[in-house]
């Protein structure tokens, strides 16, 4: 029996009729075609599916779409301002904060949550904050560099999401 699910995604109201067991990540990817949110492990380990719900980062493979009824969801597609990259994305580019890039959308969404909580996080706080995100390429150093730089650019440039 399908249910009606509605939410705001990247500022736009969306409404779909889906099976009750539809995961949020499948709702985002399959129903809305926003494939920037990735499925890495599908078991809540890797964080590639991280999105923001009402301003807090969560793993979209670990919740039902129905659970975010009427909530506001931000995915990686909503982070940049049109063609212009968000400052944090620019920092990932500058610091070579990615290799294959598969984990990057989740890293960015989690980093925004870390910076949202503390605009000047230490390297230790960044590393601890990334506890739920796995990267199999970089060894994390450049990711931490990128978040540190991104936080600095956001403090100076006033870039916000």
């Amino acid at each position: 029996m399908s249910i009606d699910v509605k939410m705001i995604v990247n500022g736009k109201p969306v409404r779909r009729s889906v099976e009750p067991g539809t995961l949020l990540v499948h709702f985002i990817r399959n129903e809305l075609g926003l494939t920037g949110t990735h499925v890495g492990c599908d078991t809540a380990q890797c964080g590639a599916c991280s999105v923001s719900v009402d301003g807090r980062v969560i793993k979209s493979c670990s919740i039902l779409a129905a659970q975010v009824q009427d909530c506001s969801v931000l995915t990686i597609e909503g982070v940049a301002g049109g063609e212009e990259l968000h400052l944090l994305q620019t920092a990932f580019l500058q610091c070579h904060g990615l290799q294959c890039g598969y984990c990057t959308p989740g890293m960015i969404m989690t980093a925004l949550d870390i910076i949202g909580e503390n605009s000047n996080p230490s390297r230790e706080e960044i590393a601890e904050g990334l506890d739920g995100n796995l990267c199999r390429c970089t060894g994390y150093h450049n990711i931490v560099d990128a978040i540190e730089l991104g936080a600095r650019m956001m403090r100076q440039g006033g870039g916000s999401v």
Binding site: V57, I58, K59, S62, T110, D113, D131, G132
Partner: peptide, 9 residues
């Protein structure tokens, strides 16, 4: 508890 994402949910 868990990680950042788990603590938010």
């Amino acid at each position: 508890i868990g990680d950042r994402q788990v603590r938010n949910m």
